[in-house]
């Protein structure tokens, strides 16, 4: 019985939809080893969508936060200095110098000569 039960190892499946997109968690499946898990992955979870890459990860290899540890994810909303929000007044200042503000939208558009 134990040997038979052991056939069902848990694997987490991740995939990329396009070359540009990050890996995304899809779901979990049962398989006896990672090779079989790999040949199950696409057809079980991505039958109808494009995929360019797949990872399978043994569930037991994933370190998860427990319910107490998840409290460590909370933080105060006082960190404007870390983001552009804290520097919004620059827009007005640049206008006084008759210049446009180099905001996120502008800066991220520089790569690749405006081509996507």
């Amino acid at each position: 019985m134990e040997a038979k039960k052991a056939f069902y190892q848990e694997y987490e499946v991740f995939s990329k939809r396009t070359y540009k997109s990050p890996f995304q968690h899809q779901f979990s499946l049962l398989a006896p080893n990672e090779e079989i898990a790999m040949v199950m992955a696409q057809e079980n979870f991505m039958r109808r969508e494009p995929v360019v890459d797949i990872w399978v990860v043994k569930r037991s290899e994933v370190r998860k936060l427990d319910e107490t540890e998840r409290f460590a994810l909370q933080r105060l909303d006082n960190k404007q200095y870390r983001s552009t929000k804290g520097y919004g007044y620059l827009k007005k200042k640049w206008r006084e110098y008759e210049q446009n503000m180099l905001d996120e939208k502008e800066i991220l558009s520089w790569g690749g000569d405006g081509k996507q």
Partner: peptide, 10 residues
């Protein structure tokens, strides 16, 4: 197993 049923069917 069920996972294989799905894969084989594809």
């Amino acid at each position: 197993h069920i996972e294989e049923d799905v894969a084989f069917s594809s």
